[in-house]
Nucleic acid binder design. Structure first.
Lengths: 335, 335
DNA sequence: TAACGCGGTAAAATCGTTTCGATGAGGCCG
DNA sequence: CGGCCTCATCGAAACGATTTTACCGCGTTA
């Protein structure tokens, strides 16, 4: 309703002075300052964000393009982003690409218009948006990827080492005596999926048997499909362990196997990925490869801040976290 | 980088004409239009959102203050909001109050500055923010509540009938022969919890036994606590059914009971609330009271649009949806 | 005594759009 | 041929802040 002008008029000063009271109070004489402040509260004056952003050239909002909000893993990453943003007095605007490249493109266009403080994104497919992200960068908007595919270094990125994660999974399952192992996940065009599989395959010995159960998507639903497929095999041919590309799939597999009367881990062991809270809380607590979820988000946001605040001094870098194995009942020793 | 001025110069027209090409192309002669358009693409011109918003007086972003993003129920509501926003060419900015009133207050202040198109909010506690929401409204920013406590009608609201939900739960459990029933949930200051409990209590007969297992929060973790508590009771004193204030709690109860070797539903039946996807996919598929999740969000957003587009003609109203009972294995007949 | 510095404030420029009134060029009609 | 209407375009005035420059009065210093 009321603008800075009315405040100025009521306080009997110029608008510049009001602005100074708001932003650099130490420049203003105490008496004037007080007069302005009472005018502000009296009118219920609130600054106009758009006007500030227009003048400043960018807003105080970090844009986050999430790949799939229905994965609790993403929510935890977000929590990390928010905590970093909060200390820097920035807002976070979360949007959901839902793994849809066209939608992602629209959202990035929107961010181009809004000129946010920076953009954090898990790209649907990093190569495809390369140029669109480049346009953001060339407009002076820092971009940090939650993705390690851009290790070639065309910008900042945060990720965890998915090949290592797959390797940890394989070593763990072998150590537990499993020699017939299935990998459930897909599509393999998603880098994370491919790398987790690659890590697993890399540590198996030639005598081991690795089956891939390809899935169109990583959800509880497709996990159940995978579970059905596993349960349908004759016991002699059935894998004794399943490594799932994420915990949602693992939950689906677990639930379906249980329903078919197979015992976990006695008949089939299950190993998930991400270590979401639901994993620990499953009927059979799931072993999982843990990524530092909040830290991932927190670090990404900090790198964004750094780049935004010291644009010339800034050096792009890629931070790769090491995943851990969290052992729970679903891959316990069975004999 | 380049503004509307440079486009105008390159195309040899005035800025006003460029603006018209962008917003009302039919007003501009085809030939000029083309010239401007090529200038736009040649310069890679992108409109400056802040400037537009400043001029327009409000932005094209809907603000959503969510109560708890880690509840998948909320994510589904959000999906509904997004779908409605998308058709109206609006952006959605999601922020998370995490049930923290102070945080919520800060977020609302932020929205006061940003002057969004409208605000959708599930208030931590509707009464507390009454005035702050009022300030938004008095600034011409429509507010729609995801909450039915404001039935007195001081604004638009969308909700589902939680008392009815509780009643449905009670009737169902009685029909299944249960006479010793527990309610797991809290805190009771949260309207939804209180109403669900009230509905349940209302349909039990005096001879029935209703135990309340109060919880500080509605999460899988507190659900496990409740489960432990139930399992610890001597079988004769143990409730034969638990109605949980939401599905997260129900999942926790289920997992804990299973771990204690109790069978669901044979030893204890479980009934949840919200019907999140994880409920259907649990080890024992959970019966649940379904709310039309996406529709809730969709309707809320539509009401917001209506209020924003016809401010004078608009009549506030409260839409209350009817919940359904979804029967699954966790409350199946046991004899 | 003149020059200088400084704290405090005002005034004006600026950010990039949108919108509105003015202007001018044709075409049509009387 | 003059007046009028339409179409296309221009120029300027907002929108509401921030920032820079200018100014003024007064004390300090050479």
């Amino acid at each position: 309703m009321s603008s800075i002008k009315e405040v100025a008029r009521l306080a009997g000063v110029s608008v510049g002075t009001v602005s100074n009271v708001l932003n650099r109070p130490e420049l203003v004489a105490p008496e004037t300052r007080l007069r302005v402040q009472t005018a502000v509260t009296q009118l219920g004056y609130v600054r106009n964000g758009s006007a500030r952003h227009l003048r400043a050239g960018r807003s105080r909002t970090i844009g986050v393009v999430a790949l799939d909000l229905s994965n609790p893993f993403v929510i935890d990453v977000l929590r990390g982003v928010e905590s970093a943003a909060e200390t820097a007095d920035l807002n976070v605007m979360v949007v959901n690409s839902s793994k849809d490249a066209a939608r992602e493109a629209r959202l990035l266009e929107m961010f181009e218009e809004e000129r946010p403080f920076g953009v954090l994104i898990t790209p649907v497919n990093a190569e495809g948006q390369e140029q669109r992200l480049g346009r953001l960068v060339s407009r002076g908007i820092p971009v940090v990827l939650f993705d390690s595919s851009s290790r070639h270094g065309r910008g900042c990125a945060v990720a965890s080492d998915d090949v290592l994660g797959g390797r940890l999974a394989g070593l763990h399952l072998r150590e537990r005596g499993h020699r017939r192992i299935a990998f459930a996940g897909g599509p393999f065009t998603v880098r994370q999926v491919e790398e987790r599989h690659r890590g697993l395959a890399g540590v198996l010995s030639p005598a081991d048997e690795l089956t891939v159960i390809p899935l169109p998507d990583l959800t509880v639903g497709t996990g159940r499909t995978a579970g059905r497929e596993i349960a349908a095999r004759p016991p002699g041919d059935r894998p004794t362990a399943v490594f799932c590309a994420n915990d949602l799939v693992a939950l689906g597999v677990l639930q379906q196997l249980t329903q078919y009367g197979l015992r976990v881990p006695d008949d089939v062991a299950i190993l998930g990925y991400d270590d979401i809270d639901f994993a620990a809380a499953a009927a059979v607590p799931l072993s999982s490869i843990r990524q530092p979820r909040e830290q991932l988000g927190h670090t990404g946001a900090l790198m964004l801040l750094e780049e935004a605040n010291h644009p010339d001094f800034h050096e792009h870098r890629q931070v790769i976290f090491q995943p851990d194995l969290i052992e729970r009942a679903s891959t316990a020793f069975t004999r």
